[in-house]
Computed example of a mutant assay.
Amino acid sequence: MDYEFTYDDHGHPSLSLDMGQETTANWLNSEIGTDIIKLQQLLDIIDELKAGTREKYEVKSRRFQLVLNRDEADISEMHNGINEQTTEDGLDYAEEGLTIYEDESISGCGLDDLEDLLLAWQSFIS
């Protein structure tokens, strides 16, 4: 996973990821940011998953859903609490035989890749 750490116009640390990983970048920038405690808690959970003392970890916020297991990390962006397959006007895309472009609202990677990214982020913001 290729990433770039920079500072935004306000001097806050910011992560940029490759195309297809935008949701991971948005999640880290907004949900973790510079919160060292949240970051360390997540790294501890990853350690538990890798050690086999935890099978799965799932957390939802207003904007994101994070699902971790021993091998993978999946991050989905929530759309104002609306199911990803249903529009605001109630149209059910699956029922209509349509799909929603999801590349910008779902990211996945290996658990090791996420851990490496979080450790690099921890180093960058410290």
Rank of each mutant, 00 (worst) to 15 (best):
S61N: 09
T53S: 15
A94Y: 07
Q40A: 10
E96P: 00
E22M: 12
K38S: 14
E55G: 14
Y57A: 08
D44F: 07
F124Q: 04
E31D: 09
G110T: 09
M19Y: 13
D92S: 13
I46E: 01
E4D: 08
L119N: 05
G97A: 09
H79L: 14
G97I: 08
D89Y: 04
G110F: 04
S61F: 11
L49C: 09
A73D: 00
Y101A: 06
V59C: 04
D112F: 08
D112M: 05
D112Y: 05
S30W: 02
A51Y: 01
I82Q: 15
E95M: 11
E104L: 12
D113N: 13
D44A: 11
D18V: 07
T34V: 15
F124R: 03
Q122R: 14
L39G: 07
T86F: 11
M19H: 10
E104G: 13
E4Y: 11
L119T: 05
A120K: 11
G52E: 01
R70G: 12
D2S: 10
I46K: 02
M1L: 14
E104P: 05
N80H: 14
L17V: 02
G33Q: 09
T24K: 02
Y7E: 01
G33C: 10
A25S: 15
K56L: 07
I100K: 10
E95H: 12
N69E: 00
R54Q: 15
Y93K: 14
Q40T: 12
T86M: 14
Q40N: 15
Y7R: 08
D74M: 02
D44Q: 05
I32M: 04
T53D: 05
G20Q: 10
K56G: 03
E102Y: 05
Y7W: 03
G11L: 12
L66Y: 05
S16I: 09
K60E: 15
T23P: 09
H79G: 01
W121Y: 03
L91M: 12
G90T: 06
E115Y: 04
Y101K: 06
M1A: 13
I46P: 04
I32D: 01
Q122T: 07
E104K: 06
E84H: 11
P13G: 00
A51G: 06
Q41I: 08
D2H: 13
G81W: 00
L49T: 07
L42W: 02
I82K: 12
V59S: 13
G52C: 03
E102C: 07
Q85L: 14
H79A: 06
I45F: 02
E96G: 00
D35P: 06
D2V: 05
C109A: 12
Q122E: 13
P13W: 00
M78L: 12
L119S: 01
I36L: 13
L118S: 03
L49R: 09
T23N: 06
R70A: 10
D113L: 10
I32V: 15
T34H: 00
D71T: 01
D18C: 08
G97H: 08
